[in-house]
Design a protein around this nucleic acid. Structure first.
Lengths: 192, 192
DNA sequence: TTGACAATAGACCGATCTGTCTATATTGTC
DNA sequence: GACAATATAGACAGATCGGTCTATTGTCAA
């Protein structure tokens, strides 16, 4: 046993697992996890059915893995975006990131919100991912409001969470103006 | 032609159409419009398939009608809730209504947001309903902030819309605390 | 060369989906 | 009682769903 000699695709190529995740990401995010069937994912990924079930076991797990990768990427993305901003300014700067996201071509709201509202089974593996990411956001908001030196950092952090949710949900329906509106109020809140 | 002699069910009974709408409302809202099939609605309504297609033509139209009735009821509900509150206080009072909604047993987020995110076809009849209701909310927020005499009523109204969306979306995932958080910031905004 | 492994292609299964259809029962009006 | 309208019950069709299975191909290591 042992001696993992794993290594199939040449470094320049993308392995089947990643192709499946890429396809799932595009389709699930754009159209929803219930609207997109396995066959569409396979066609988009140019992969075989057996590969999907070999790597993920079932569709629910593919959905969870898609969400998981989304959250990992988002965290890295946000941390990088804020790296050059002094901690005391990060709370507000974060809303610049939100505005940019809402204005991006493929923006279609929050994948976590979508998935939670589509998959009502409380035991679905994707829900744990969503919950974890929510916690990460809450923690970051507390960090940023504390660093900002506002009067009530915890209440302010919770309010920023509401503004974030509202920015994303509102932008999905009404366009990116809602994200700017959220930033406007966030600035007011952090200044007062 | 003419002489509508319509009148089937006795006044004390509920007609099939309403039974279907009631069932659709419960199931679509609780589990999502894609997760619930026609047969589940029929069983819940204790109705025949032909009745559904006689009254609504297709599932998409049933979904639109369910949303339409939701919005009509919500408008009446909110207006009644605020009737005794002086116009200048209605913006804040509205967030009491939101908190109460988020705390209600069957709360599961915003039916408009859910439907828009599940039905990505821009031409879907349900989307027009959702859009109309958003406009109604925006208009009301402008009324209330104007009556409140705040400095920038339009910007404030847009910010309240964000808080509303954030309250509802956040409460769906994290619980009704998010609605209270939104109210907290709304109060701050309307006071300052 | 051989054997293990990862991947593809696609038939197949049973369940479920929306929607159509026929047949039958009930009711109010003439 | 006859008729039209409304409702029920449920078979049926065609598509799609998630998931299993077999057969085949290509590649690396021994």
């Amino acid at each position: 046993m042992a001696q993992k000699t794993r290594k199939r695709a040449k470094p320049s190529e993308i392995g089947v697992r990643d192709r499946l995740l890429d396809a799932a990401d595009r389709l699930f995010y754009q159209e929803g996890v219930r609207a997109v069937g396995i066959d569409r994912v396979l066609a988009e990924a140019d992969a075989a059915k057996a590969s999907l079930y070999q790597h993920f076991g079932c569709k629910d797990q593919l959905v969870a893995s898609y969400l998981e990768r989304r959250t990992v990427d988002a965290r890295a993305n946000i941390d990088a975006y804020l790296a050059d901003t002094p901690p005391s300014q990060r709370a507000l700067k974060f809303f610049d990131w939100v505005v940019a996201w809402a204005e991006s071509k493929d923006f279609r709201g929050c994948p976590l919100q979508h998935t939670v509202s589509e998959l009502t089974d409380a035991a679905h593996p994707a829900r744990a991912i969503a919950h974890g990411q929510r916690e990460w956001f809450a923690e970051r908001f507390r960090e940023w409001t504390t660093a900002a030196g506002v009067k009530d950092p915890k209440a302010t952090a919770r309010a920023l969470m509401v503004l974030f949710d509202g920015a994303v949900a509102g932008s999905e329906v009404d366009g990116p103006q809602r994200a700017s509106d959220a930033r406007w109020l966030a600035k007011k809140l952090l200044a007062g």
